[in-house]
Simulated assay, not measured.
Amino acid sequence: MTVVNTKNAPTAIGPYIQGVNTGKMVITSGQLPVDPLTGMMSAAIEVQTFQSLENVRAIVEAAGLTVANIMKSKIFVKDLNDFSAVNVAYEAFFAKYGAPFKERSSIEFAQFPKDAKKEIEAIAVV
């Protein structure tokens, strides 16, 4: 098992790692919608969704896989009223990388670090 770490995703803001590669799968920690270059976060839920997915992609790619290898994602969202906007950004992200949609779960969650509106984690399979 190897730790996955990349400068192309935000550094962890707590005592955890960006991801782990077991040799058969890559598991990412929850990715806030923070731009790793600027440290900033958009207020728009669509932009936040896309950025969290880009951060997941960066970790998966650092482990040598692609978006197409993502088999499962969990979307934690602060307000389920934002769900249609999240879906639009989620669909656009996977379309951009020519990857089919995978299994996912969506969970409403009360509060995130940095007052983000959402967080996404994923499992990619070799």
Rank of each mutant, 00 (worst) to 15 (best):
G64W: 04
Y16D: 00
A9G: 01
S73C: 14
S29Q: 13
V47K: 06
T11N: 14
T6M: 07
S29F: 15
A62I: 01
V77N: 01
V20L: 15
M40I: 04
I13C: 09
N21I: 12
K72D: 08
K24T: 11
S42F: 00
T49Q: 07
A68P: 08
T11Q: 15
V60S: 01
K96W: 07
Y90T: 05
N55P: 10
N87R: 01
L53Y: 12
T11P: 13
L65S: 04
I75V: 11
P33C: 14
A62R: 02
D35Q: 10
S106K: 08
M40G: 10
T11K: 14
D79K: 05
T66Y: 09
S106I: 15
V86M: 06
M25G: 03
M25Q: 07
T6R: 02
V20Y: 14
N21F: 13
L37W: 12
M25W: 00
A58R: 06
D35K: 12
K96Q: 11
T66A: 10
I59L: 09
P100V: 11
T11H: 13
I45G: 00
I107V: 15
Q51P: 13
T38G: 07
Y97A: 08
L65D: 00
D35R: 09
Q51C: 09
Y90L: 03
T22Y: 11
Q31D: 09
Q18I: 15
T66K: 12
N55G: 06
G98H: 11
Q31V: 11
